[in-house]
């Protein structure tokens, strides 16, 4: 199961506003460059939210999340495709987010609990 998104500057600004994280490196290119970044980076927590979408789409109303964690191994930048992948084995869920050049920049895991009687 996968989900492909391409966050643009508008989406980064919308996420900054909704989350309250106004760290300049996500919308001020001059600031990002002073930190050595080539472009505006996607918020780690926005990438986590994309992986979270995939988990909740997959889980539906069959159960609930017990925990969900994401580790950021590389940066992703605006206007670049970011593809989220999900593989489930029982209640254990493995996730990763892949940048356009095939790097697994974002690794995730989750544990779910199925409602009683749900066929997993």
């Amino acid at each position: 199961m996968k989900l492909e998104v391409t966050p643009d500057l508008r989406q980064l600004v919308e996420y900054a506003g909704a989350s309250g994280d106004f760290y300049d490196m996500h919308y001020d290119l001059d600031f990002a460059r002073t930190l050595g970044h080539p472009d505006l980076a996607v918020h780690g927590l926005l990438k986590a939210a994309f992986l979270g979408r995939l988990v909740t789409d997959w889980l539906g109303d069959r159960g609930q999340l017990v925990w969900f964690e994401v580790s950021y191994r590389g940066m992703d930048f605006r206007d670049q495709p970011f593809t989220c992948h999900l593989e489930a084995d029982g209640t254990a869920v493995e996730l990763y987010g892949e940048s356009a050049d095939g790097r697994r920049t974002t690794l995730g895991r989750a544990e779910v609990a199925f409602h009683t009687g749900v066929d997993t």
Partner: peptide, 10 residues
């Protein structure tokens, strides 16, 4: 700052 990771326990 960089973000290294996030974990949520429900």
């Amino acid at each position: 700052w960089l973000n290294g990771g996030d974990r949520f326990e429900y």
